[in-house]
Structures are given as C-alpha cells and as structure tokens.
Write a protein that binds this DNA or RNA. Structure first.
Lengths: 188, 188
DNA sequence: TTGAGAATGTTGACTAAGCAACAAAGGAGT
DNA sequence: ACTCCTTTGTTGCTTAGTCAACATTCTCAA
C-alpha cells in the first residue's frame, strides 16, 4: 500500500521523532492530552523546544502523527495494507479499530471531548484510505461505499469502547460484520 | 570529589554517548571485546561512524570510558567519593572492586588477556585517585601507601573473581581488609 | 603469495539540533 | 483592573551529527 516512511530518513530525525513520541505517550497516560504542554514533552524527551517546532506545528499535529503511526502499525501487523477486500479482512479491520479505541481509553488520562474528536478524525481518514485502496483493487465503486463503511465502522468501535460492560469482542464483531459488509459488497 | 561531568553537557552529546555505550555493552556481552568492531557499535547504535570518532579515538578509548563510568557509578552509589579514609570505607571499596570484576567476567564474552589488562589499568587508576583523595584529606602520606594499597586491592579482587569456587564475599573481604588497612594506617 | 573484502581513520560539505532571546497570548490570583 | 508567571511560536547564530569518499591496514581463504 504505502512505502515505509521510516527507512531512508536521516537518523537524527528518526531519533528525535521517537524521543518526542515516547515522552508524549507517557505524558498522555499520566496527565491526559489537554494538560500536556509542548514544554512537558520536550523536557521529558530532552529535546530543545525549537526542535519540536521543526517537526510539528503544535501538539495537535503531534497527536495526529502519534495516532496515525500507532494505528498504521496495527494495520501492518496484520498485513491489511497488502491485500484487497474480503469479508475476513473487513472483520479484522473492525476488530483493530475496536481494540484501538479500547486501548486509547485505558491508556490516556481523562479523555475529553476535544481529544476524542481529534482521534476520530485521524482514524476515520485512515480507515477511509484503506477501504478505498481495497475497493479500487477489486474494481468496485469506491467513494460512497467507503464513506458509509468508514463511518459505520468507527461508530461501532466507538460505541463498543464506551460500553460499561463490554461483551466479547468476537461476538460483537460477528454481529456487526454483515451490516458493514453489505455496504461494500452490494454492487459486486 | 569530582564534579559530575554529566550535567551541563550538550544534550546531543549525552544522547550519542549513551547510544554508543549501550550498544557497546550489549555487544560486549554477546561477542566479546576483541571481536567487536567500531562498525558493529555504530551500526547497532544507529550512529554515523564518523560521529564515533568525534567522541573516541578508537574502541580502546571506548572501553576505558565505559569501565570508568561504570566503576564510578558504583563508587558514587555508596558515596565513597564524598568521605575520607576509614576502615569501613576501605572495606566497601574492596567490596566494590570484587563485585565489579565478578560482574565483568560474567557480563563479557571470552575475556582475553588484552581485555583484562586494559580493564586493570583503568580500574587501578580509579582506585589510586580515590585513595589519594582520602589520604590527602586526612593529611596522611599519599603516594607510596596509595600505590601499595591500589595494587593490593586490585590483586585481591582479581584473585577472588577468578576463583572457581568463590567463598562468600563477606568472609573474603573480612580476611583481606586488615592487610590492606595496615598499609594505609601505619603512619597515622 | 596474492588478491578480494572488511575495518579503520580522516576529510569537507551539508543538514539537523541546540540555545538564548524575543514578542505575544493566556491563566490565576489579588 | 492589575501583576506575575507560564506557555507559545519564531528567529539568527553556533555546534554536533550525517554522508560519501578516500587512502590504509587487516584478514583470511584461494
């Protein structure tokens, strides 16, 4: 799908970004997004503040980057970026999104509205791109079905991750899958 | 005793040295000193080879630095660098040297002659400096007693660390201590 | 013995990171 | 209102790290 944006990058850049990312994640878990300042991140990363701004325009850009990278890692781990549409792949995608949101809610202190909608935007963009990629390969119509499915998947995952008593993920996905699949397959 | 050479140092320098140090230690444990190349170190540290030479003239200088730093850390941990001569402090010093050599023998693959004598030189320099510092503070004669004690201590520790069946460190040090102490105290 | 490959040091030109200082905007309390 | 303090972006100059290239030396097997 995508060329790996890691390799061939100046080692200093990789190092710096990793330092920023690592300290950001730990601060996120400790204090929550709203109360983390750029200062905090650079202090803990032992990076100059000016260097931060050479990489990210502000902490929102950093959040976007962090979420995107973490989510992409999950996608790549299951090789969903190197295949095309199938019910089973779709099932795995839904699964990933659910797990991802659950993880975020357990790994980030005080998730406020602001934070959640930022994450939502980033994740939906990723889902949409992946679905588009799948459908294009299968010569299926893309735009509308991918949009519908994207929102549906994210909605399901968000719902699931907010449940007080979450049912088994397997059961949940089994029930949800056909509803999403029909959106993508109906013109096959 | 010494001002901490860590603080006030350019963050990039600290980072680079730590990266080099970390990868060196792991390679030392894995392959042994003789078979570790500068290449290996810089590859694993993800540092440019030219950068290595900006910090160390060669791998021997690196070994020196690594040993010195590790040993100094033990000294500082027990605050021996902030006190003066006493039998108890001397006892702790002997203890540290013994433990240090034991650790090196278990943590480094195939310790050859070359490696051992490099370590010996570095450690003895450290011991000598510490003893001199102690004695000077107590207005005791320095040069000769410190020399004798340094060699004695290192010899004991080396002997101990090479024993096939090592007795309890406590017992060993209890026996050795008075012999070394007399060298330092006889003119008190 | 020779020759091919690997490791060593070194160089000079380029790029990223550090730093200090600045103006500006917000927040908390008095 | 006010100050005091913190955070935010931004800038110009300095220093450290990167890279590719080169000449040497080592090593080891053909």
């Amino acid at each position: 799908m995508l060329p790996n944006p890691d390799e061939k990058l100046d080692p200093r850049v990789k190092r710096t970004r990793n330092l920023i990312l690592t300290s950001f994640e730990s601060l996120l878990a400790e204090k929550g997004f709203e109360s983390v300042s750029v200062q905090d991140v650079t202090d803990q990363a032992e990076i100059n503040r000016a260097t931060f701004y050479a990489h990210f325009s502000d902490k929102y850009a950093l959040l976007d980057y962090a979420v995107q990278k973490a989510f992409m890692a999950e996608i790549e781990k299951r090789k969903l970026n190197m295949c095309s549409y199938s019910p089973d792949n779709l099932r795995n995608l839904i699964l990933i999104v659910c797990e991802f949101l659950v993880t975020i809610h357990s790994g980030c202190a005080q998730p406020h509205q602001q934070f959640e909608s930022l994450v939502e935007g980033t994740i939906k963009k990723q889902i949409f791109e992946l679905l588009s990629y799948w459908l294009k390969k299968s010569k299926l119509p893309t735009e509308i079905p991918a949009t519908v499915a994207t929102w549906a998947i994210y909605g399901l995952a968000s719902h699931y991750s907010h449940l007080k008593k979450r049912p088994s993920l397997e059961k949940f996905v089994d029930e949800a899958l056909p509803l999403v699949a029909v959106n993508l397959e109906q013109f096959a």
